[in-house]
Amino acid sequence: MTSTVLRAPASRPATGAPAWSARACSDSDYDDVLAFFSEPDFFFRTAEPDTRSEWEIRKLVGADTRLLLADDEPAGLYALEGFGGEHGCHYQLHLRLRAAAPNAWWHSAFEEIVRALTWKKELVRLAVQVGEFDGRGLAFARSLGLTEEGTLASVVRHGGQRYGYVFFARIWALTS
């Protein structure tokens, strides 16, 4: 099993990282959420963010998505989606920061999300899927050292072309 045991990160977030907080998306947050989706590469559960209408964005966000705030400023969205039976402890992470957020923020956001999840729950497999058209997402996933499990070819259209989805994952050593 090629798992790397995740060391608990230092208690104080790495220098340069903002103070993260998160909350469910309330109606008053929606101006910020809609602003995120007006960015052409805000690929949060969609390959065509900037032409989605308001009802569709509300459906994409749904109840399981949380608004991520950096130093109390809205910075992006994330959602953890359970896969298969609960006993499988397999989650898929959807994480997206707005264009202005520095790349380093993606790292510390990911670490904090994982720390919060594993605080209360067993995690065995955390998966991330990134469209081949999503340069920023690919850079983030590869920089994290996630295992690249392959590409499911030509399954999504973007800008009139066909692209695949690249599968990434991290496996945790079985503790229980």
Binding site: M1, T2, F83, G84, G85, H87, G88, H90, V124, R125, A127, E149, G150, T151, L152, A153, F167, A169, I171
Partner: peptide, 11 residues
């Protein structure tokens, strides 16, 4: 197969 996902599920 093009993608191989370990620990995908427990059945």
């Amino acid at each position: 197969s093009r993608v191989r996902c370990e620990f995908d599920s427990y059945t």
